[in-house]
Design a protein around this nucleic acid. Sequence first.
DNA 1: GCCCAGGAGTGTG
DNA 2: CACACTCATGGG
Length: 283
Amino acid sequence: MRFRLDVRPLDLDLTLGCGQVFRWRRRNDGSWRGVLSDQVVTIRNDPGGCLVEATPGRRGAKPLVHDFFRATDDVRRIQRRLGRDPVLAGGVAQFKGLRIVKMDEWECLVSYMLATYANIPRITKMVDALAVGFGDRISDGLHSFPTIEELGRASLADLQRCGLGYRAKYVHEACRAIERTGIAELGRLPYEELREELTKLPGVGDKVADCVSLFGFGKTESFPIDVWIERALGRLYHQKGSYRKLRAFASERFGEYAGYAQEYLYFNERVRAADAACAFSRR
DNA sequence: GCCCAGGAGTGTG
DNA sequence: CACACTCATGGG
């Protein structure tokens, strides 16, 4: 199936390329390929909006891709509002096509549990290993992300063989916990209650709970604070202190779309660091 | 070889 | 509440 994706603005490299999702690959021709549910989806930039190709699946590819890119977000309006903050204005202008994505809740939960104390290439590798090991094969080397039941069948040793290290037991226990409560039930909770429930899971602290709330459950008011954001808040807003304190500041300052503000700050900080490293090695 | 990673859990002051 | 230490590994 092929169709044109009318979601704008959308910059694939920004949105899929750095740290939000871990299972999308940029191909040599600049297109991106990933798996949504049970479908392999390929997206390429095109003057009239992105072109999408998808393998057949249970659900139509169109609503799948639409939901994934949060097509109903009025990103321009969000950017106008956040851009009134002079500190944020630069990032908003620089990252116009950056969108928050809506991942599958379960895949998001597991992915960010794996993200603790690991860098992005490694997170990618771990998530891929789980898909290959326990997901369903779709086509040439591409697998769906394992369901709760599929991953639940993996033993602790199985998970450790995927290179999860100490995270294996967290994932293993999370399967049991979510099999009990159900992921859909969590989705009905408002943000504050959701993050509280998520934090009860082993291996899920404040930061992971906020990432999962934002990228998995679509709570745009969530503001995950990692080392990069902590740095940015200190440098740009002179805010320091506990997670609770920084979170309160972000909520007050950025409101219901704090998640978008977080992405602009995150990317800005990473680009900055890359530039600094670059300038240093060029010397 | 060395350093550190989109942190979390646990224990201590 | 603030800090320290550990956790298991691999990518740069």
